[in-house]
Design a protein around this nucleic acid. Sequence first.
DNA 1: TATGAATGAGCGTTCATTCAT
DNA 2: AATGAATGAACGCTCATTCAT
Lengths: 178, 178, 178, 178
Amino acid sequence: MRADAQRNRARVLEAAEVVLARDGLSASMRDIADLAGVGVGTIYRQFPTKEALYQAIVVDRKLRLIDRAGELAGAGDPGEALFTFFAAVVEDATAKKVFTDALTSAGIDAKESAPDVRPAIETLLTRAQEAGAVRRDVGMPELLALLAAACLAAQHHRWDPDLRTKTLAVMFDGLSGR
Amino acid sequence: MRADAQRNRARVLEAAEVVLARDGLSASMRDIADLAGVGVGTIYRQFPTKEALYQAIVVDRKLRLIDRAGELAGAGDPGEALFTFFAAVVEDATAKKVFTDALTSAGIDAKESAPDVRPAIETLLTRAQEAGAVRRDVGMPELLALLAAACLAAQHHRWDPDLRTKTLAVMFDGLSGR
Amino acid sequence: MRADAQRNRARVLEAAEVVLARDGLSASMRDIADLAGVGVGTIYRQFPTKEALYQAIVVDRKLRLIDRAGELAGAGDPGEALFTFFAAVVEDATAKKVFTDALTSAGIDAKESAPDVRPAIETLLTRAQEAGAVRRDVGMPELLALLAAACLAAQHHRWDPDLRTKTLAVMFDGLSGR
Amino acid sequence: MRADAQRNRARVLEAAEVVLARDGLSASMRDIADLAGVGVGTIYRQFPTKEALYQAIVVDRKLRLIDRAGELAGAGDPGEALFTFFAAVVEDATAKKVFTDALTSAGIDAKESAPDVRPAIETLLTRAQEAGAVRRDVGMPELLALLAAACLAAQHHRWDPDLRTKTLAVMFDGLSGR
DNA sequence: TATGAATGAGCGTTCATTCAT
DNA sequence: AATGAATGAACGCTCATTCAT
């Protein structure tokens, strides 16, 4: 891929994330192109439809989530690792709408696109349970449901840090059983 | 207001709820009018914009929420009352998109319209805390945040009853502190 | 149908005919709307797609062709009737592109829309043959082929009256066998 | 012109003919470039606009028509020569859209580009008339009009060989006066 | 010189909103 | 008061053409 094409692709993704975060799924391609400083045609060269652009962002986000989970799994206290990951994802979601959708589409929507974040999270959960930091009767479905719920709400209502801390504290209490 | 005008208003609200639940915010006024059996102009006589119609539904929902909270507050075990209310709202949210938005706009969005559901919920919370069923350090903001989060996620991902039960169980555990 | 709707429908059809004659199938809906003095939406209220608008014009043209053939069949010399009809259609085609397509789609394209002009023309042909004005070994397929060919060429190259007369004279000579 | 440039020019013309025959005037430059195995820019180096490319093909076709007419004029029965040429052109037109346009633009459109096919055809006509095979009162304009008409219709409606034979028989009858 | 990425006007179509009927 | 026809800005997307590589 040519250098300018690569630069433009990155610019488009960045702009799309911003505009999608601001306007939701009804964001217009024109707006994205304008913010990226390219013509609309340039977007369509890389992404055949609006949907494809959207999916590309989601995939990108999923990859970053998997990375982050991997890092945390490799080091430190297992209980803290899970909760830190959880809180970090929610924090990101506040700013980046698409992050939520990445997470969101991960756990539930079977039809969704490539990388699966669930194994990475499952590792965190299992280790936390083995360390006694999380109740053994908590399964992946409800963990993901809680995570998605927190992300959706954090983003939808722009949780401030204080509210985020307090709300997650309740969830973590429920997960740990103490 | 004339009798037929009132009847039309009710019909429009009913149709709008159905169509919005089905198609989300991108529902078209035409579809709503068709289902209501009126012309689009008739909707505009009652509601100056699509947004206003939407807000009217939200207000309607809020009133029903307040009613339900009042009923539960008047009878039975205070802890159970709060959790029953919470679960009932989430259950409704699964089917009725707008319900969530009602709740959602209630707790957070300052710009939002008239009836305030918070006092009704606060009564449930206070009584539950006085009965020792909920930790005293849980405040209204995080309770509403949890409720909105559960509603958003339940609706977004169509929680089945089993997932709803398990996920709420974790939340309730966290709220009760045991 | 409301009076204004009817007036607009007529205006749109008229404008569409002009613009289609000028620009061919690549005519734009915007241009048609502008010439008709209406908004594009008004066209779409009556005709769900560009294709449908086009078909409506074709159908309209076919009906007029059938009428004209009927009139000629009812009166006068059978040979003259066929040749007069033929010449009249070609004359119209010079000005109205769509006329040709009406005729054109009639004889050949089986998939095409409703009214069939062939029976009307067949009557003219049969009567002309019975009167000895046209060779008996001429069939409908080649008659229609000649008619369509003359229309296409007349329109494509803007035959002037003199050229039209001379060219049709050759065709009529061939048809009559003398 | 460099050897590779010449090769590219030939490739583009060949591809353009195929694609234009298939898709008509709405064929895209991209499709032509892809089939030719070159970049779109390469087409534009040789042909400043799509229209120019199109004209180049037409010119190419005209040259071939002139060649063919020349061959037939040099040998055999003059009447047969004209009719054979006529039929051959129509047969080609069925398959090659552009052929028609070549012929078409030849006789009529004054603005059109270089080589003139008319002298070549006129030779055929004159010789046929001198041999008594064609009426003396038939002029070039109507002969070309008939030829263009047959080509347009043959192509537009995909005349099968049987229909072609029968329709041309009528035309030839008209031309020969017997 | 050849490439194909970038451009942006323009396309067909939709739909919230207005207003003549 | 009710209707639904009319409006036109805005949408996702295409493609002839230009120009950086």
